[in-house]
């Protein structure tokens, strides 16, 4: 018995090794949002054109809330045309795309909007209040809100056509506002 006991010393490192091996399966940068299923925080911003932009104005619609910045290369540049394309396609079906520009300079952001000919409402979050309210880590991050105004999905990274359609179609298929 005493002889066997000492072999526990090398075996003691196995749990540690197993834990480290487990580490390969997780991404330390992928942090789930606690906001899923919760009502989306309200905000009131002013668009680049100077019109007020609030979430309350779009109550009853499926909202795609996209956080971006002009310095976010290349992901934001990849998704901007995707968002514009899908916005045009879905705008008449009770879907609205809202862009929030964070940690940015106004000129650069306006150039970005012009360059991609974005027609959906875009506003700058000057103080960071909206991005913190949504628990934003970086850009781009996109939130899909259902018609009751609850956050249903958080997508990190560039939005593709497939991601946009899958989420929006699912939320549209749900029964409308109560």
């Amino acid at each position: 018995m005493r002889r066997l006991w000492r072999w526990l010393i090398p075996l003691a490192v196995l749990p540690v090794l197993a834990l480290l091996a487990y580490g390969f399966r997780v991404d330390p940068r992928d942090i789930p949002s606690p906001l899923i299923g919760r009502p989306a925080p309200a905000f009131g911003l002013t668009t680049f054109e100077g019109t007020p932009l609030s979430l309350a104005a779009h109550r009853g619609k499926v909202v795609v809330l996209n956080f971006w910045a002009s310095w976010c290369q290349p992901a934001c540049y990849e998704e901007a045309p995707v968002l514009e394309r899908n916005w045009r396609e879905y705008r008449d079906r009770g879907v609205v795309v809202v862009g929030v520009d964070i940690q940015d300079r106004r000129e650069a952001a306006e150039k970005f909007v012009r360059e991609f000919g974005l027609t959906f409402p875009n506003a700058q979050d000057l103080t960071g209040a909206v991005s913190v309210d949504y628990g934003v880590y970086g850009v781009p991050e996109t939130f899909f809100l259902d018609r009751q105004g609850r956050i249903r999905v958080k997508h990190v990274g560039a939005v593709t056509d497939a991601v946009f359609r899958a989420n929006v179609d699912r939320l549209l298929a749900e029964p409308g506002s109560p």
Binding site: P10, V13, L17
Partner: peptide
């Protein structure tokens, strides 16, 4: 993965020798 494998090899061998 390579480093983890080597770490496992080193620790198990060395502590095995101790035992």
């Amino acid at each position: 993965a390579l480093f983890l494998g080597f770490l496992a090899l080193v620790m198990l061998t060395a502590l095995g020798l101790v035992a």
